[in-house]
């Protein structure tokens, strides 16, 4: 009897020890994960505040060695194209988010009405668009015919409706009890009144989520600027300007490595490495700054209706 108890105690102690080892290892893995995620960003931040010539030596980690704000001054005051890109990006993010949210919400609304006669056929019509893709070239040709290329509107109009977002919103709206709509209709409210006054106030969480996804998409996009507005610098976007900046830098460092470039090494006080770091931080700053406040919306968006369409 006593032996048995002792065995049990020993067994429990063994489990406790195993648990402890597991927790320690697990914590180490998690901390490593966090370091791998954060370090490159913090490193770029440190470079962006470092004096240019000094940074060439490398060896900067989490803190600038020779502090300077010159890189940011150059980005903001001297590179006109980056500021132009910033305005276009801000404009498309604001306008694009508002219009796209309205367009997605209205479609979700009519698709979530139980009595709508063409509910299933219209759903199918949009679900097909998620899979059948015309491809880059036919779309480009179409936009040219529609005079959407070489214009700001190419950022707004084609992306108004996204079938995926509509499915997420529709799922959410279907969860709202019908009795609310019926009561309003008894009072004489039309469909648009129901949409604006009853459904919309109840859908704020899902609206916020979709709006954030759309806004991040607008902020980060560059390929449309390159594809449709390549020869129209007035419609360039921030990310595309960053891309051009990074591209020119990697071309010049490549030249240095081959020992052919004489011009790159004769650059004045600022080497491109720090300028590009500053541009990178400048571009990601709004997202990083807003991210902690908005992350709960990001997460709910996935769990609302995203898992199973």
């Amino acid at each position: 009897m006593a032996e048995e108890v002792e065995l049990k105690v020993r067994h429990r102690k063994k489990i406790a020890a195993e648990d402890l080892i597991f927790y320690i290892i697990n914590t180490i893995i998690m901390v490593l994960f966090a370091i791998v995620t954060l370090y490159p960003v913090l490193n770029t931040l440190a470079y962006s505040f470092n004096e240019g010539n000094d940074a060439v030596r490398g060896g900067i980690h989490l803190w600038p060695r020779a502090f300077s704000t010159r890189n940011y001054e150059e980005i903001i005051f001297e590179r006109k194209s980056i500021m132009q890109g910033l305005w276009v990006t801000v404009g498309r993010t604001l306008l694009g988010t508002v219009t796209s949210l309205a367009a997605n919400a209205l479609l979700s609304f009519i698709l979530s009405r139980k009595k709508f006669l063409f509910k299933s056929s219209l759903s199918l019509f949009w679900i097909i668009t998620m899979y059948a893709n015309g491809g880059m070239i036919p779309i480009l040709i179409l936009y040219r015919y529609l005079h959407l290329t070489s214009s700001f509107w190419v950022y707004i109009v084609p992306g108004l409706v996204s079938a995926f977002n509509v499915m997420v919103m529709r799922t959410y709206m279907q969860g709202i009890p019908d009795s609310l709509e019926e009561a309003a209709q008894l009072e004489g409210a039309g469909y648009m009144t129901v949409f604006v006054k009853i459904i919309t106030p109840l859908c704020m969480p899902v609206y916020a989520t979709i709006a954030l996804f759309v806004a991040v998409g607008h902020w980060n996009s560059w390929f449309d600027a390159m594809l449709y507005n390549r020869f129209d610098p007035q419609y360039t976007t921030l990310q595309y300007e960053l891309r051009k900046l990074l591209d020119s830098v990697s071309a010049s460092t490549g030249g240095q490595q081959a020992g052919t470039s004489a011009t790159a090494s004769s650059a004045a006080t600022i080497t491109p490495v720090t300028v590009r770091a500053a541009a990178t931080i400048f571009t990601m700053a709004p997202i990083i700054a807003l991210y902690p406040f908005l992350q709960r919306y990001f997460v709910t968006g996935l769990t609302i209706g995203g898992v199973k369409e």
Binding site: T44, Q239, L246, S250, R276, T280, T283, M284, I287, F298
Partner: peptide
């Protein structure tokens, strides 16, 4: 862990390159 998801590929590429 999910912060990098919101960075553009341009930024991620710059980071990887660096």
């Amino acid at each position: 862990s999910y912060m990098p998801h919101f960075l553009s590929w341009i930024i991620v590429t710059a980071i990887v390159h660096d």
